[in-house]
């Protein structure tokens, strides 16, 4: 009897950014020059850490401090689903988010952008997907900020996402962008993704269903993690 856990499908090349991307200066000394070794998926890659809300406290509203003080800026609701490539929900997945404040400044000692910090906004959140793979959090729409990659370089508004799936091979960190942002057309990080459709899947959509009347606009952002190989490799020896 066979009980081999199947590995994960290999990424679609054009839908993922390369390590060496000429327009993004920081890749120059950080991209490997040797081709990567393609690994067969073992239990190390098909298993993953488990995170429970009991041990990893959720933080689903980034706009309000414990004492009730409110962050500055445009409050927004962001929600969506985490699925795999077979459209199966990824349940109980831990999703971490971090972002700049409304003025485009990170609450981080390394950020020297001349824009105000907001004492009521740390810019860190943590949510878990439910049985349908759905997640939702409330935050402030992040501002754009300069980043010195090239002349007059500004990052488009974005929220960083860190996601854990059911296998360490599904581990992903990405960024969510906003529809209609004029800076997207100029951004080398966004444009490092060769395929236009793949780029656009990182752009959230305005969602009236998620929008709460008299309170905040809603944006929908779905994420897709790698799917399992259809058939595991059988060993008949």
């Amino acid at each position: 009897m066979s009980n081999i856990i199947p590995g994960y499908r290999r990424p679609d090349r054009l839908s993922q950014p390369p390590y060496d991307s000429a327009g993004y200066g920081s890749t120059r000394l950080r991209h490997p020059q040797q081709p990567p070794l393609r690994l067969p998926h073992t239990r190390t890659e098909t298993s993953a850490p488990r995170f429970s809300p009991q041990r990893y406290a959720p933080r689903t509203d980034l706009t309000v401090q414990a004492d009730g003080s409110a962050a500055m800026g445009e409050r927004i609701i962001v929600g969506g689903r985490v699925l795999d490539e077979d459209a199966r929900p990824v349940r109980n997945a831990m999703v971490e988010i971090w972002q700049a404040n409304a003025a485009g400044r990170y609450n981080h000692p390394g950020d020297d952008h001349d824009a105000p910090l907001d004492p009521n906004f740390q810019g860190m959140g943590r949510v878990f997907t439910d049985q349908d793979g759905c997640y939702r959090f409330v935050t402030i729409r992040p501002g754009a900020y300069p980043w010195r990659n090239h002349k007059n370089a500004w990052r488009p508004n974005h929220i960083h996402y860190s996601v854990f799936g059911d296998g360490f091979a599904q581990r992903m960190i990405t960024q969510m962008y906003f529809p209609g942002d004029p800076l997207l057309a100029l951004d080398p990080i966004f444009h490092a993704i060769p395929d236009e459709a793949a780029r656009n899947r990182l752009v959230a959509t305005f969602d009236l269903e998620l929008t709460r009347p008299e309170w905040a606009l809603g944006y929908r952002f779905d994420l897709v993690l790698r799917g399992r190989e259809a058939t595991p490799m059988e060993d008949h020896h």
């Binding site: 459209a87 966004f190 459709a197």
Partner: peptide, 26 residues
């Protein structure tokens, strides 16, 4: 920046990775 098309029920493609950047310490 066109609106992303509605995802088909089957045959989804894994989302693209993006850099964690310099401020991931949050």
């Amino acid at each position: 920046t066109p609106t992303p098309e509605a995802a088909p029920a089957q045959g989804l493609v894994a989302s693209a990775h993006q850099t964690a950047g310099p401020y991931w310490h949050l």
